[in-house]
Computed example of a mutant assay.
Amino acid sequence: MNAEGFGQHLDNLRPALKEYGKFVVERITSYLKSNITPQEYNQLFKVPPSARVKDTASAVEKVARKKYQDPVGQMTDVIGSRFVVLMQADLEIIEKSVLNCNAWTARKDRTPLFEIEENPEVFEYQSIHFIVKLNEELKINDLTIPRDTPCEIQIRTLMQHAYAEFVHDRVYKGEKKIPSNVRRLVARAMAMLETTDEIFTEAAAELASLNLDIDAWHSEATAIYLAHCGSITSKVSTEESRLFYETFHFLLSAANKNDVRALFSAYASKIIELKEEQNIFSHPIVVPLLWLLKNHDQETAAKWWLGKYRNDLETVAAVLGIGLIGK
């Protein structure tokens, strides 16, 4: 089949191929919705997942340029779908969704980590590419997509997407030779974007660790408080409680929870005496607060941000026999 014949073939199949592209996107997103939480799904994509069928003129030009003898079998990017996520750590779940679909057979066409390892000095177009081919003939809305019809799936981070959008047409598809200084600038940009991806991933991991620590402290403090004081009646808000743990996270990371529990047990009767509906003594944050003032009194006082509970802070310190500077 020559280039012009392939163009006619593509036009005839275009309606079916569009449905195939939608099918690929739907199968992948359905897998994701079944395997991650709604909140995680809503945060995953920074560009809506999409599919497209290659423009006929572009396809004909590529067949002629590549001298394909069997364009139907050789051109694997006639249909393409794209998934853009925020960070490198998000790529894996998309890859799993591609590999765990029984409607097609998947082959990885490009692997950025392998390419970087093989050519570490080259900063290239680094999307993950899969080629999937239908295991059986597919019928959608009276349209038939033949078995083995390929679809290219691109998975990339937002940084890779920005790079690709700039470079794809201007560097790799341009007719003119690109000057060496421009290629160096593009390589520098890719290096910076790759570094930014890594920094975002590291920052996200730190935040995830912080959230786990905060949740763990909240659960531990609540259990200790309820065991000794019976009920929580404070009007300390969820936001105020979270800000407390975020503010003192570094100091609490050194705390032994058995020591925290023993300290609160020793002073629980006094806390119960001071318990009133609107003060800190009626909320579980008093549990780690006792330990903070016992071990880091002045630093805790200096970082204290809840002015309306300043008197309660000073009362807790007094219970421990501690005088706060500059109160």
Rank of each mutant, 00 (worst) to 15 (best):
T247P: 06
K18G: 04
V25M: 06
H129L: 03
S234H: 09
G174N: 11
T247R: 15
G80N: 12
I155G: 03
D215Y: 09
D70V: 05
K308V: 09
I214M: 00
S253P: 00
I131Q: 05
G326N: 11
S237V: 03
E95F: 10
N42F: 11
Q69R: 15
T315S: 08
K62I: 00
S265Q: 12
E152D: 08
V171N: 07
S81L: 03
N100Q: 10
R14D: 02
P179W: 09
G73K: 12
E124T: 06
T144E: 09
L289V: 03
E19F: 08
E61R: 12
I93N: 05
M1R: 10
A187G: 10
A223R: 15
Y31N: 03
V78Y: 00
Q39V: 08
K33E: 15
Q154C: 02
N311C: 03
Y267H: 14
D142Y: 15
G323S: 15
R27H: 09
L290T: 00
Y163K: 03
F166Q: 07
V319K: 08
I93S: 03
A266H: 14
K308P: 01
F83S: 00
A162W: 12
A191K: 11
S34R: 14
V47D: 13
V25A: 07
E220L: 14
S253V: 03
R261I: 00
F123C: 02
R183Q: 09
E314H: 06
G5M: 11
P179Q: 04
E314N: 10
S282I: 01
C151G: 05
A51W: 03
L290A: 01
W104E: 02
P38L: 03
E26A: 14
R82C: 02
T222H: 12
A59S: 07
V171C: 14
A103H: 12
R82D: 02
I280P: 04
V186S: 05
T315E: 13
T247C: 06
R261D: 04
